[in-house]
Design a protein around this nucleic acid. Structure first.
Lengths: 351, 351
DNA sequence: ATTGCGTGGGAAAAGCTTTTCCCAGACAAC
DNA sequence: GTTGTCTGGGAAAAGCTTTTCCCACGCAAT
């Protein structure tokens, strides 16, 4: 906290009852100084005797004075406030991002307005309007899917905008995304390094960019390992456990019995693991499995616990905060940046 | 939106490039009127000719004028802003609450500051300090568990405070909670109404108030149905699928084979369902199961899909918004209110 | 004793809006 | 033609801070 030594952060919430929050006039009056002097005393600026300074601070603490940030913001034309517009109703993916972002910004004393638009352009517009009225210093846009969306700007006054887990054709804005392709490479190379040679891929709907990118990573990692791409080993469906079970059944009835499966998410992976267990196929001995998302609810509850790819969403959120701060400070950042995923090895591909 | 007819909500984000956001002075100058007149023209107040009014509005729209809410807030001593402090890092339970709350408040043009304290009193204090500086009109406190916490106030200036999914000994504040006991009654009466007579209860750690309340509901519903409470049928453990499996195993090896299980949450219920299936016990034919939370990730993926108790968290969040609005409007609300849960019947107790 | 300088503190403006009060002008009525 | 009334619009204050500029006083130096 930059102002952790300012008097109001230490005092009680309020000691003296005022009819409304005390202002600097109250402080000045009670300390027998002018308003300007009181302000200088509280802000470590100006030339004041130590004595006066302390007197003012003491009074401020006693009456629970806390500067009105609205007035401060108005004065300095910076609100120390940013907005987040989400289209995920803050679901599983945006949440860690938003949490890390909020934490980073809180470190700088910047508060976060949270707006949920749930893919409704009218609501998004309404929120945006309100945020602009509140003179936010920056804007973060996030979503459930990393697919391209229409730009939310551009803004005449150069409002800094960061898209995270989301992207748009917005030349002035920065997009921060996980490296889906790299994550898939990580998973498949890991499986190959275990000696697996028949690696299947069960995943979600192909209209997701993430599905296409992870598929690309799967293929390139296979090629790098000198393994053939087998058509029947690629199964695109939906993001559910039921599909994972169904696809696994299919792999072991019609297709040629793989010895490893890379799944597009952890739900599919868990479904596949369940199906294999019920078929009497041992995981990881007969078939190794790696999921995607590293969602503990799935990976830890599955039998056996699932290896998975972690998109490092907290790090992504934190970086979004860093970047936004840089942009607010005047730096120009733009383009699309993809950040690496991590492989988390558990029993399903362990040993 | 109360001001949906004000000009700025319809115009473009910005048409003319200003060095910084245009102010009402710019509008007044370009429309050849005084600042006061411009304000009146834009706000439907005062006595102005229709002509002047339209001229001002046209200019405002053309230059993308948007009133500075910081100045408005400063003037009217209402920020139209509230804060939410969460200690759940916005997890599964607080999300729906916060989402509904934000939606309700957005309807009134009130923006929401989101703060995550994660059970760290220092961070909570820091956030609170900042929020008070920003002159929020109200505060919502939420948490991962509904257990009692230390009050966040009291505040000298009567800041409205609502605890939701959380409670504290704060005489001036309102607490809104789900009726855990009633939810348990709902579940157990439902099972009894299906003709089940040996109803077990597998649940989480007893230091959770929710566990104790649901247990109480379980017992009172048993009594109401004229069923005996059997000691071996109550199993308290942790909130996990693994515990659900383990407890179910125990019920069917040592205890006297129940014909229904009411589970303290959906993860336990899913674990129990899995264990039963693997023992060759049919759900719901041999044993009916009802979970708690109605968490779709569990209830829909389980085999069979799980009946569950829904805490109606969205309704709770919306009501928290309503109450906070009332309190901001001057109404005095306090005490602890518990809101009913709903029973969602699926296959695990269906037919 | 007078000049000069430094120091401590005050006055005022600026940032943007809203609202109240007031004034000037126009028109009607006498 | 003069008075009165209504109407359209302007001036100014208030809301709270910060910051710049300036002034007055005291002390030291000549």
């Amino acid at each position: 906290m930059q102002d952790s030594d300012s008097p109001h952060t230490q005092g009680p919430i309020a000691t003296v009852a005022f009819s409304s929050a005390p202002t600097i006039r109250d402080v000045a009056r009670l300390a027998n100084v002018s308003i300007g002097t009181a302000s200088k005393a509280l802000n470590a600026g100006g030339r004041l005797s130590q004595e006066t300074r302390e007197k003012v601070r003491r009074v401020a603490r006693e009456i629970g004075y806390r500067p009105n940030e609205l007035a401060q913001s108005l004065h300095r034309a910076k609100s120390r406030t940013i907005g987040i517009i989400s289209n995920d109703s803050f679901g599983r993916f945006t949440f860690p991002i938003v949490e890390a972002l909020e934490e980073r910004l809180a470190e700088e004393g910047i508060a976060v307005f949270m707006c949920n638009a749930t893919d409704d352009p009218a609501r998004e517009r309404q929120h945006l309007d309100q945020l602009l009225g509140k003179r936010i210093d920056g804007l973060v846009v996030t979503a459930r899917r990393a697919d391209k969306r229409v730009p939310i700007g551009p803004f005449a006054h150069g409002l800094p905008v960061v898209y995270v887990f989301s992207q748009a054709d917005d030349p002035g804005a920065l997009s921060l995304l996980p490296d889906d392709e790299g994550g898939a490479v990580l998973a498949v190379s890991h499986l190959a390094s275990l000696g697996r040679r028949r690696i299947a891929h069960i995943t979600g709907p192909e209209h997701f960019e993430a599905v296409r990118l992870r598929h690309a990573g799967y293929r390139s990692a296979l090629a790098d390992a000198g393994l053939p791409g087998i058509k029947d080993y690629f199964l695109s469906g939906v993001w559910s456990e039921a599909w994972g079970r169904q696809a696994a059944d299919r792999l072991f009835s019609t297709a040629g019995k793989p010895d490893a499966i890379f799944c597009g998410n952890d739900q599919i992976a868990r479904g596949a693991a369940d199906a294999l267990r019920e078929m009497g196929i041992k995981v990881p001995d007969d078939v190794a499995i790696v999921g995607f998302d590293n969602w503990d609810v799935m990976t830890l509850a599955a039998r056996p616990p699932l290896s998975s790819i972690d998109m490092n969403l907290k790090a992504l959120g934190r970086e979004a905060g860093d970047s936004l701060l840089d942009m607010i400070a005047g730096e120009k950042l733009s383009g699309v940046a993809r950040r690496p995923c991590s492989l988390i090895v558990r029993e399903s591909s362990g040993r």
